[in-house]
């Protein structure tokens, strides 16, 4: 067990070092949220909606790092020819993925800093009326949801080269389903149904409720649903990791760039 913890910690450290010098990472947490906050504030202006622009920009960056960068990591391993080597190690892929993912979450969380800064300095807007305890808990629940989704998706990237292009293509779609920049209640009913099986959606609703958005205060329910869905993903992920060890070995797709 301690050997696995050590391996995950080392994967985290490696990933942090690689990311720190990776321009895509720095674009992802620094520039990308900025552009969306600016767009959001320009459209939503002042009033009660600016929280959506500022927090929303941060959420996009946070999610983007966890989801796209998490997938990128596997794709990069494939490109550099190291995917075979980590698959050939006596350490399960999930241990390595967890380490790497923690580093993407660290960088992703940084997204909130440029988002808040540009709102404050360029538009003189900030997120007000924060209810600290529910806000903090909601943030943790959201982080858990991101973590579980990304862990579950990673084996798909190892198995199929096209999996990454699918999730990458749908990155913006997820902003819609998660209600990152506007409430999902305005979406067509069928999309709301799709959004409701998406764990981050519930945590994001709680997060915005904690900034005074008029959703009611059913925090416990929202947190519980989000956590339950996240755990559901992990169960699916458990099967996927078992599958990846067999399937990737059968097709020999590990080596292909």
């Amino acid at each position: 067990m301690t050997a696995y913890v050590r391996a995950a910690a080392r994967a985290f450290e490696m990933s942090m070092k690689l990311r720190a010098v990776n321009p895509f990472t720095n674009f992802g947490w620094l520039v990308f949220p900025l552009i969306f906050v600016v767009l959001g504030l320009a459209l939503l202006g002042g009033g009660g909606k600016s929280a959506y622009a500022i927090l929303g920009g941060g959420l996009l960056g946070y999610w983007g790092m966890a989801y796209v960068e998490g997938g990128n990591e596997i794709q990069n391993e494939r490109w550099s020819g190291t995917l075979e080597q980590i698959m050939g190690c006596p350490t399960p892929l999930v241990v390595i993925v967890v380490g790497k993912l923690c580093s993407s979450l660290v960088f992703g969380a940084l997204s909130f800093f440029p988002a808040i800064a540009v709102g404050y300095f360029a538009f003189h807007q900030s997120v007000q009326n924060i209810d600290p305890v529910p806000f903090a808990v909601s943030f943790l629940v959201l982080t858990f949801a991101f973590f579980c989704m990304a862990v579950t998706l990673a084996p798909l990237y190892a198995m199929w080269r096209w999996a990454f292009s699918v999730t990458n293509g749908f990155e913006i779609g997820v902003y819609v389903l998660g209600g990152f920049m506007f409430p999902i209640s305005q979406l067509p009913a069928w999309l709301q149904v799709v959004a409701s099986v998406f764990a981050p959606t519930w945590a994001v609703r709680a997060l915005y409720a904690a900034t005074g958005q008029p959703f009611g205060r059913q925090y416990a329910l929202w947190w519980a649903v989000s956590i339950a869905l996240s755990c559901g993903y992990l169960v699916i992920g458990w099967f996927l990791y078992r599958l990846v060890d067999v399937r990737a070995r059968a097709t020999g797709q590990l080596a292909l760039a």
């Binding site: 459209l43 939503l44 909606k49 990155e171 913006i172 779609g173 819609v176 506007f182 305005q186």
Partner: peptide, 15 residues
């Protein structure tokens, strides 16, 4: 789909 949906819904939310 994602891009049109996101920005149009954002626009609807705003205006």
């Amino acid at each position: 789909i994602g891009q049109i949906l996101f920005f149009t819904e954002l626009g609807i939310f705003a205006t």
